[in-house]
Design a protein around this nucleic acid. Structure first.
Lengths: 182, 182, 182, 182
DNA sequence: TATGAATGAGTCTTCATTCAT
DNA sequence: CATGAATGAAGACTCATTCAT
């Protein structure tokens, strides 16, 4: 419901009705609407986090191939996530709305750090294998790539014609080309 | 005020007080709080749109240099924008909250399309000059780059240590390397 | 309404309905239900305080007569106050209920101090006129008398047959007898 | 718990938790929160009633001495009662709040009648012994004295500096002086 | 044109009470 | 005999919006 109507647009009463329980029952499990929302956030993080971790572990071969595979598995998440992606925007907004700021901001910072770490490890691996150039900054590239993925989802959400899979693959090809030893 | 406390966190009364006018006066100029918020959104779009256009027109020399320059001028916006960036998240959220969805969603779609267009033109130019490889998809690269910039701001907002300028420059160098004819 | 149903038993909505105004209007004038209740308390204090002061100033002759007159004017308040006296009990309870404690407790302390002062001044006057014995403690007697008046109202409230005027007059006669020089 | 947080401020859940039993269990023994509260009231009445009766029976000698002794034993209760005294105010308030009114009001009326009876018997005894004057009204004096004791506790509760023992002794001396045959 | 007092629908939250186990 | 999860009525409070001045 938060995905459909946003945090403010969803009332606790609505949630209870949809869950077919009494309003009070919600408060047996969550101390406040905010807590409930944060729980949804944690559920979402866990869900997407798992997807990434799994996809990484399955990868084989060269660093370039693994990057490609990571990209593929992220993009295949899109269809699954599409409908709940709005949530992410609600989370971002929550992280900026003064009341819940701290909680969400800390969680987001951590989330991005973790994700960047995974990607930068992958690049460092590519460098040490002699596959990627040594004069690149793995952390910078990782940060940018992580951002790119996020933002592609964002654009896809705004524009239904936008195909994140195709675009990300083409773009990643360019990036990998730029990373490789000439 | 929307930047400081979010859409929900800001009341019409607050705005009137800060503007030192009566609550009723606001309704002489805007039909609703939503309209007022959308007006802020349009103002913001115009402002950042102008910044981009200006920076593009000033660019000289090679496509690679122009991309670098664009990146530089965008990132130099960061210090200016930093405090108002929350607004963008509020806009995103507004675009997802069912009530205001349509309006904002259409505007965002347009905004991204325009921005992508500017960047893809730049890349097409690079290709036609024989500077970039011919087997790349300018639109895809443009879409991804636009997203990257957005997302770097996002991460910078969550993590004060994060330096978007440095990271974007390093990443762009890799991308340009990937774009160039070998 | 507080007098009829108590603090908890009266809802802000009830008050608004009875006053024939909107619920929100109440909050234009009071920050909370508690504030409104405290305002009623202050109104009550002013009202009864005025009654006492007036009756004192009007008094003439001997200290004994003035005490009698004070008693008379207090007791004549009874018929007026009778219906709102419950309020006092609500105030006492408010002063002990943890949330509003401080405010009310301070106000009550002051109220009693002021009232005791008035009575003890009267007794001191009686002593200096040579009318009352010198070995009595004016403050102690004043404190006890003030309490007695309060408590007679209390008993009268519980028991409609109880006649505070008659009882207080008879009791005061005994007390004055005890105060007088033999 | 009622003494600490008042009737409204104490929830059935709180009580159950403190008693280390289930919420439902309370309803095995009491039909409602109100009933439970009334049971506390009855317990309190019995307890203080006993204290008075005991102190009376122990008294010896003259009526004046017995009054003094009663006063002493009541005031010595203060330190014991101090913390639970809030309860009395809660009871008063309960007696005035429309929902529980009747029950409490009847009980209070009885309580005061009983107490007045004890004191007036004592005074009647003093008269028949020829110790007190015959033109006084024992019931009136008793009613007033009972009230005074109540009210001294009240003032002591509001004002920690207030010493009810000292004040009551001094006042009683005056009253006894007024009661005695010249 | 500007105002701000008045409004009441709509929020989140609490809590006495029930009842299946 | 004890329990505590579930409930929903009820309550305090907020705030976008209106409208008479």
């Amino acid at each position: 419901m938060f995905a459909q109507n946003g945090y403010t647009g969803t009332s606790v009463a609505d949630i209870a009705a949809r869950a077919d329980i009494g309003k009070g029952t919600i408060y047996e499990y969550f101390n406040s609407k905010e807590d409930l929302f944060f729980a949804v956030f944690e559920w979402y993080c866990k869900k997407t986090g798992a997807a990434v971790t799994v996809s990484i572990s399955v990868l084989g071969a060269s660093a370039a191939q693994r990057l490609d595979a990571l990209n593929g598995s992220l993009m295949s998440l899109w269809d699954e996530i599409k409908d709940v992606f709005v949530l992410v925007m609600e989370f971002w907004a929550a992280a900026s709305s003064s009341k819940m700021r701290q909680r969400f901001q800390i969680a987001f910072k951590q989330l991005y750090q973790d994700f960047r770490r995974i990607v930068s490890d992958l690049i460092v691996d590519g460098i040490s294998r002699g596959e990627f150039r040594e004069d690149i900054d793995p952390e910078a590239v990782a940060a940018a790539l992580v951002g790119t993925w996020d933002a592609l989802f964002l654009q896809a959400w705004f524009d239904p014609i936008f195909d994140p899979l195709e675009i990300s693959q083409k773009f990643l090809a360019v990036v990998i080309q730029g990373l490789k030893k000439s």
